[in-house]
Amino acid sequence: MREERLLKILVGPLVSEKATMLADAANQHVFKVSTDATREEVRAAVEQLFDVKVASVRVLNQQGKSKRIGRFQGRRNHWRKAYVTLEPGHDIELAGNE
């Protein structure tokens, strides 16, 4: 795969209570990814950027929430989320230790 495409796959990490518990308990990390990303592209991007071995990748499409401002109704954009399980012995350090 082309390197410039792999750099655009991962939009950013998702930091939530559930994602933190998964990272601690099951060695899984959650990323917001491009809406047209495939499992193989997510695997390759994580392995290249973080220098780790990926065991499995699960992706899901998240529907945008309906929002209302006064009398105007709208909707946020749909997005895609990826759950990345790492091989034992590998870890991703997202927050720098100071």
Score class of each variant (00 low, 15 high):
Glu40His: 07
Gln48Ile: 13
Arg71Phe: 15
Val42Tyr: 01
Tyr83Val: 14
Asn27Lys: 02
Leu22Pro: 07
Val11Ala: 06
Gln28Trp: 03
Val30Asp: 00
Gly64Val: 04
Thr35Trp: 08
Ser16Asp: 05
Lys65Asp: 09
Lys67Phe: 12
Ala82Trp: 07
Arg80Thr: 10
His78Asn: 15
Ser34Ile: 07
Gly64Pro: 07
Glu87His: 15
Ile69Asn: 12
Gly96Pro: 07
Val30Gly: 04
Asp36Gly: 13
Tyr83Leu: 14
Thr35Leu: 14
Met21Thr: 14
Ser34Met: 07
Leu7Tyr: 08
Pro13Glu: 06
Gly12Tyr: 03
Ile9Gly: 01
Gln73Met: 10
Arg76Phe: 13
Glu4Lys: 13
Ala37Val: 07
Val11Tyr: 02
Leu94Gln: 02
Thr85Lys: 12
Leu86Cys: 06
Leu94Phe: 09
Pro13Gln: 08
Ala55Ile: 03
Val46Met: 03
Leu22Ile: 06
Ala82Asp: 06
Val15Gln: 10
Arg5Phe: 08
Ser66Thr: 15
His29Ser: 08
His29Gly: 00
Ala45Tyr: 00
Val15Asn: 02
Thr38Val: 04
Glu3Tyr: 13
Ala44Leu: 11
Ala45Gly: 04
Val30Gln: 02
Pro88Asp: 10
Arg58Val: 10
Glu4Ser: 08
Phe31Pro: 01
Arg76Trp: 14
Asp24Arg: 14
Arg76Gln: 15
Asn27Gly: 03
Gly74Leu: 06
Tyr83Gly: 04
Lys18Arg: 09
Ile92Gln: 02
Val33Pro: 00
Leu7Arg: 15
Leu7Ala: 11
Ala23His: 02
Ala23Cys: 05
Asn97Arg: 14
His90Arg: 01
Leu49Thr: 08
Gly96Leu: 07
Thr35Gly: 12
Ala55Asp: 13
Ala23Phe: 06
Leu6Glu: 00
Ala95Gln: 07
Gln28Pro: 01
Val46Arg: 00
Glu47Asn: 06
Gly96Arg: 11
Thr35Glu: 12
Ala45Val: 03
Glu87Met: 13
Ala55Cys: 06
Gln73Pro: 05
Gly96Ser: 09
Met21Trp: 13
Val59Phe: 05
Arg43Leu: 09
Leu14Met: 14
Asp24Leu: 13
Val84Asn: 04
Glu40Lys: 15
Tyr83Ala: 09
Ser56Lys: 14
Glu93Gln: 11
Thr38Pro: 03
Lys67Pro: 07
Phe50Ser: 00
Leu86Ala: 11
Leu14Ile: 12
